Each structure stands twice: as structure tokens, then as C-alpha cells.
Simulated scan of single mutants.
Amino acid sequence: MRIEFTKMHGLGNDFVVLDARERAIPEIDAESAAAIADRHTGIGCDQLVVLEPSSQADFRMRIFNADGSEVEACGNATRAIGLLHGEAARIETLGGIVSAQPSKDGVAVEMGKPRFGWNEIPLAYAMDTHSLPVGWEELTDPIAVNVGNPHVIFFVPDTGAVDLARLGPEIEHDQLFPERINVNVATITSRGSIRLRVWERGAGLTRACGTGACATAIGAMRRGLVDRKVIVKLPGGPLAIEWREDGEIIMTGPAAESFRGEFDATAYGLFAFGTAG
């Protein structure tokens, strides 16, 4: 069986999209997802995205990191899927239902409301998520927030001076974070601008992370460092983040389709059919 795919990206954070909304495909597991995501022997991507029918929304989006782990949310992927779908949509994810709306400025995504409880991040034990009394070398006094997936944010004088490739995996796998954690290092450049680098859980250093931009903006807003509308500048480009008065986070930014293709399902160990479609 040959499976069609679409390769997409949001600010360089790239995805392989499999559309099983109308035509069933074999069941994706961690091993097959990692094989497809492998940049040397597979198609190559930061995340594999599988679209399926949903009884709660217009459709369901499943997200697998490059290591095969399934995750709750991905802001860049949501923008890409909004572009692919071509019109406003409510999308079911493991992190809840989000909304995507294509516009002249890219794709606007309603990401839901942030959560701050220690057990909502989650952390291994109770502590104030506004200022965690922990540190890893020069990275200290972080703030934690869940925006559909868990993030910890460190505000530093210069994001480029942080050895995130070394410290990122150490923090991601620390016992304080039972479901692991996305690691953000941010520099406030003005009341309306933040510079950001992200070590993404299960994917590593990334050119862009939509949920990381949301979490970092919310963290900076909670500490009074920025206004409620900011531009978050990532290595791949900028995202506009707004924290509305009703508590909803709105992320707006570009997405693009790179190319389309197909592959032999058996090449990645896909044999048994799933139930989608």
C-alpha cells in the first residue's frame, strides 16, 4: 500500500502530514512515527501529524515528535493544518480543542487558556509555578505554564549565550518533570518584543515552536515584563501572540507547504490498518 503525504513547515519547524480523514491508513505507533521522521532513512521532519475523523470537532490531529512520542499540542503544526484545510476549523488534539483561521496575515490559532497549577504542568511535587526555586547552572528562577503541553521558561540577558543543546536535554529529563518538559530561554527586548530559543521535548533544538512562543509570552506577561500583545522572534521568524482578556491565547503566523509525495507503507513497518475513515 502506498500512502500519500504532504510536507509542510511553520517558520522552519517541519511536518509530514498524513490525511486519514476520508481514507484509512495503517495504525501509526511510536516506532513507525520515528522511522518516518528520520532525516537520513525516512522522509524527515520534526513532527509527524496524522489527521483523523472526530466526533467532537471538524477533525482530529495526532502529533508525534521525531523520537516517536505522541504529544498533546503543537502550535506550528496547527497553523500548517489550518493552511492545508483552507478554511476555519475546530481541531481536536490530546491537549484539547483548538481553532484555526486562515487570514491575510497567515493563520490565526486560538490555543485555549493557559494553566498554571503545579499538577497541571505537571511537576513532581507542589511549588509556585510563577517562580520555581530550581536552577541548572546559569538557568535559574524559571516560570512554568501548560499551553496544551508543558513548558518551563528562563529569562536571560542573551539567549545566544546559553548552551541549550547541552542544558536542554538535562532539564527536559529532570525528575521534577514526570512527563518531561519543553525548555525555553528568552530575552525581553522591549514591552512588545521577545527573542526566544527552544529545546523541544522529544525533538531537540528547533527553529520555531508555536506553543513555546505562547508559553514564553504568557510567562513574560504574568511577570509584568511585556504587554498583552507581543512579537516573539524565533530563529525561524516571528510569531504574534495575544493573551485576550477572556483568557484565550491567540497565535498568528505563517505556514507553508513544501511538497507532496507518497511512500510504501511497508518501508516503515506499517501493515495493520487503523480505524480512521
Rank of each mutant, 00 (worst) to 15 (best):
K7F: 09
G135D: 09
A34T: 04
A34K: 12
G237A: 12
Q101E: 14
H9L: 03
T140G: 04
A88F: 11
E262T: 12
A80H: 01
T211S: 14
P133F: 06
A220E: 05
E138K: 11
F15H: 15
I25T: 06
I25R: 03
P157Q: 08
E110L: 08
A80E: 05
R79Y: 06
A276W: 11
F259D: 00
R180Y: 11
D38F: 02
R23H: 15
F15W: 11
I36W: 08
S69Y: 07
N13S: 03
V98Q: 03
G212K: 02
S55Y: 10
R2P: 13
G42I: 06
Q101I: 11
V230G: 14
S54F: 09
D174Y: 10
E172P: 04
S69C: 08
G212T: 11
H151Q: 08
T41V: 03
A165M: 10
E262V: 07
G10L: 04
N76P: 02
G160C: 09
L196T: 00
V16Y: 01
L239M: 11
P238D: 14
L225R: 12
D19T: 04
F15Q: 08
Q47K: 15
L225C: 09
E138M: 03
F177Y: 13
R115V: 08
I171V: 00
H9W: 07
E137G: 09
E179Q: 10
F64E: 00
G277P: 10
